[in-house]
Structure formats: C-alpha cells, structure tokens
C-alpha cells in the first residue's frame, strides 16, 4: 500500500518535473548551493564545501583561470585576436620557469622541431585524448564529482573522464600504459596528494610538444582554499625526458550556472590532413 502510494507520488513528480527539465537551458542552468553575498551575488571567497567525512569537496565545474594575453608577440600558436585564448600554460608548461622546462637534449631538439611545425602532429589535433596534465590548462571545462573514496573528473573534449581513487589502493606495479595513467590520492590535511603512473610513451603535455615518457610519474597537490578556486601544484618526474623533476602551479576558477556540453572532436575534423599537406619546409 505504502509502496503503491510512493510509486504514484514518484510518477507525479516525474510528470510535473519533466516539462521543466526539458524547457530548461542547461547552458545557463543555475548551480545549486552557491554561497551568496547579501546582494545575492556568488560569494567566491566563502569556505569550500566539505564531504561527509569532513574533507574539502572539490565538486564543481572548473576552468583554467589564466587567459592568453593579447600581445603582438604573444605566441606562435594562437593569435588571440583571431582565436580564443586559454592559459598560457596550455601552450608551454614552462612559461613561468626561467629557461623553460629542463629538457634532456633529445627532448629539447624534438620540441624545437615541433614548434617549427606549429605543433601539427599534436595528438590533440588528431582528436586523440588530452592526457594529464593538459586538461587542467586547456580552455575547456572540467567537472569534478567528488565522493570520500573517489574523485571523478569529467572532460568536455571527447567526453572523456579520469578517476582518482582515494580508497587506499596502491598504484599498479606494472600498469598497461594509458593516456590518463592510474591515479590514487591521499589527504595531507586539506590537501589531496594525487600520484599517477602508467602513462603511455611520447605523450604531449602542451602545445609546444613537450614530451612525457612511460617513465613519468606525476604528483598533483590539490586544495580548495575557498568556494571559488581550486589550486594545483603539479610535479612531473620523468628522468628519461627531463634533467630534473619540475613543478608548475595553477589556479582553476569555478564556473557557475552552466553545464558541460560534449565536444567530440572527430565529428567533423578536417584540419589534420590539410595541415600535413602544408607542413612547413625544413
């Protein structure tokens, strides 16, 4: 009896709710639970939300906070007056480092060649996955869905995902190489320290073509200092490619009142073949 009443109630809710859901524009759908200032604007400096276990909750839609500056000599890859910018780190993760990334000689030569080619062999151009840490710096949205034992990152591009297990499991000892690698996290206070291994060989980590090999391990230190931002400190240790481990810092900003809209690159990709035919002469 109780069950039948519950079913009827559920049906009624669905019946009433569906037309609203269908008419809503998720592109501008209000985000729930946003802390507000007295004037009702979002309070981005409010404390970060917490998970049921008391740890910071990283859930939200995140977007790289630094935009490519529009200067005449900004970069060779994207003319910001013509293309839309993202983080300068998307172009070169060594942007903030004096002397740039500490490449091994072979890697420096390869990057020089890739830059001269305007990165036309970039896996991203061929619609292949954006391996970590690239999604953190590309101007596409990243949605974090966080539970106490699992952090899932959803990406718009190619409708991809990444899983970070916070359940105590060890990293795999002899992993099958993969685009995302294998990630586990442990809390140090309010900072989630994520370790990743098991990458494929010769991944690109920026548009300059900086390589990352299967020998690489990555450490991401993630913290949410307030509601509106997620701070990341990413260390790559890849002795095959770099002369020393190096670290890059970045901040993600929360994107409110919107949703992911998938962007499946192979739908109508037509640049790669053309780019190959006009490859710069050496």
């Amino acid at each position: 009896m109780m069950r039948a009443a519950y079913s009827r109630l559920l049906f009624l809710i669905l019946l009433l709710g569906l037309p609203i859901a269908y008419s809503a524009q998720w592109l501008h759908y209000p985000t729930a639970g946003v802390p507000r200032k007295p004037d009702r604007s979002p309070n981005l400096t409010a404390p970060a939300p917490r998970l049921s276990d008391g740890k910071p909750d990283f859930s939200g839609i995140w977007h790289t906070a630094r935009l490519i500056p529009c200067t005449p000599d900004g970069n060779k890859f994207i003319d910001c007056g013509t293309e839309i910018g993202g983080s300068p780190l998307a172009l070169d993760l060594g942007t903030d480092m004096p002397g740039g990334l500490p490449y091994q000689p072979w890697a420096a030569a390869l990057v020089k060649e890739r830059k001269a080619d305007h990165g036309i062999d970039d896996p991203h151009v061929r619609c292949l996955p954006d391996n970590p840490p690239r999604p953190w710096v590309m101007p596409h949205l990243v949605k974090a869905v966080h539970t106490p034992r699992l952090l899932v990152l959803l990406y718009e591009v190619n409708a991809m995902y990444r899983q970070i297990f916070v359940d105590g499991r060890p990293l795999p000892a002899d992993p099958n190489p993969s685009w995302n690698g294998y990630s586990t996290g442990k809390w140090e206070g309010d900072t989630l320290v994520v370790q990743t291994n098991g990458f494929r060989d010769d991944l690109w980590i920026d548009m300059a073509g900086s390589p990352m090999s299967e020998a690489a391990t990555m450490t991401e230190r993630m913290r949410r200092p307030n509601y509106g931002s997620l701070e990341l400190e990413i260390t790559i240790n890849d002795p095959k490619t770099y002369t020393r481990p190096w670290t890059v810092k970045m901040t993600q900003h929360i994107e409110l009142d919107t949703e992911l809209i998938d962007e499946v690159c192979l739908e109508n990709e037509k640049s790669y073949q053309r780019l190959q035919s006009i490859r710069p002469k050496k």
């Binding site: 839309i84 910018g85 151009v125 548009m207």
Partner: peptide
C-alpha cells in the same frame, strides 16, 4: 573561450 584544436598559425 574555446581554444582551437589546432594551432591557428599552422
């Protein structure tokens, strides 16, 4: 913004 999936300059 939406970054091109290829280098503009290419």
């Amino acid at each position: 913004p939406a970054l091109a999936h290829h280098s503009f300059a290419a």
